[in-house]
Design a protein around this nucleic acid. Structure first.
Lengths: 252, 252
DNA sequence: GCTTGACATTGACGCTGCGTCAAGCTTTAG
DNA sequence: CTAAAGCTTGACGCAGCGTCAATGTCAAGC
């Protein structure tokens, strides 16, 4: 009235390796074990195995299956939270699919896989639309022309200044100083000077960016993680924003 | 002009552990290694890292990313096949979600997680609808009543006959014999006799099932994997079907 | 009684992409 | 000079088995 491991595996549509695994982790023990060490399964074991297989097809993990089978009343609850997880996975996949499609069309349109210069002051490729929308086409065009006019060495020097600034912001944040204190305000001052070097920024080139632009940029560092990444992520960006906003209030 | 491992990790929004991993697998080597063993990265490395991160967000595997970056023209192709895989995953998830929802409502309707008796001749719970649709409500009701009228021992005996038959079919198929040959035909005969014992089958009870029913059942073994599982999966079910069909042609 | 072949056993590694200690050397800031 | 960071190379862990490897058992035929 009982079956060998191969037989029950075939009956349930699985493999003997899987059954040994289930035995190892305590999910499904054989009905008895012969003196030779062989595993033998009876019908209750088969029923349990069928249930395991069913729940596996639904995507449940083995520990979750074990709990469900040992206290059957928990099944709806377990399935519901599993359902939640499945839905989130599906959303994630949907977003990935959209991104991949977008990337493919971009590549076929002749674009590169990513901007060459990671430290573009404004990354003229990636942020083109945002810049145009917020500050006008003219501002973008000026800034772009200015950037293109530089030699590679000049660009490298500029980028180094940008990355130095980023590093110092991160370091300041890590030390836990007050964003409205002297040190942070000195950094905000450097940031202001740095921006002054960019034509096309509202107020740029001459006396430096306007207050509105300066504060708007600070907010963008927080709102857009692509910017924020240069300052150590969200918390770092918030620190930078606070310091810049305080600076603008006092000096612009 | 280059960064330590921590710095570049922060710039790219990842961790130093990940960078060491990428170095280990040859996906992204540091620009140079100091005499102290430290890894230092330069800007080309950063660009490559940014691209890696981008492709990772799209869900590509690391080996695929390596190929894409080393021969950039292959990017659209790689992305397209990746897209295909993403879509399949989404479909799979959709099916799982539907199944989980179905299972939850069934459980809340008071049903058990699965039929107790795995070897029900027709599994009166799982196949109710199919049986009613193909052979009429009357047939199902008769068969069901017959089954319920049996004692547990009688049921067990019946189930054993069913499982014996299944095992013999599987063994015959494994031996690779001809489904139209004598041995397989003898099995088909046994199968016929076995069905004769079930009231409610068209022609059942008396002289045995009709040809139409017998052949239809054989096809169902192939079409429905829940049946086919009793005969060793798809290939086994096809073998059974071939034997049963030949038997029906000759004898019914 | 022996051989053969099918089936059983217990390890143990492999796969994916890192997270997470651990032990020990280096650099940096005070 | 010392303490705090930061770096290095291992190595285990995770999820769920697939896949050898080395070896013991069982049923069947000669």
């Amino acid at each position: 009235m009982d079956w060998s491991i191969q037989e029950i595996a075939r009956l349930a549509g699985t493999t003997s390796r899987t059954l040994r695994h289930y035995d190892d982790i305590g999910l499904l023990a054989p009905a008895r074990i012969g003196s030779n060490g062989y595993r033998y399964y009876d019908e209750p074991a088969l029923v349990r195995l069928q249930r395991v297989m069913l729940l596996r097809e639904l995507g449940l993990g083995l520990p979750a299956i074990g709990e469900v089978l040992d206290r059957e009343e928990s099944a709806p609850h377990a399935l519901r939270s599993h359902l939640e997880w499945l839905r989130q996975e599906q959303e994630r996949l949907a977003r990935q699919i959209a991104s991949v499609e977008h990337t493919i069309t971009a590549l076929e349109g002749g674009e590169r896989l990513m901007a060459e210069n990671v430290f573009d002051g404004f990354d003229h490729t990636r942020y083109k639309e945002e810049v145009e929308q917020r500050w006008g086409k003219d501002a973008y065009a000026k800034s772009d022309a200015w950037w293109r006019s530089m030699s590679a060495e000049q660009k490298a020097a500029w980028q180094e200044r940008a990355s130095d600034l980023g590093r110092d912001w991160i370091a300041a944040h890590d030390r836990g100083i007050d964003p409205t204190g002297d040190e942070a305000q000195a950094l905000a001052q450097r940031h202001f000077e740095w921006l002054r070097g960019i034509p096309g920024t509202p107020g740029g080139g001459g006396q430096g960016p306007t207050k509105e632009y300066f504060v708007g940029l600070a907010e963008m560092y927080v709102a857009d993680e692509r910017f924020g990444a240069n300052y150590g992520g969200r918390a770092g960006a918030e620190f930078v924003r606070d310091a810049m906003t305080a600076y603008a209030d006092r000096n612009l």
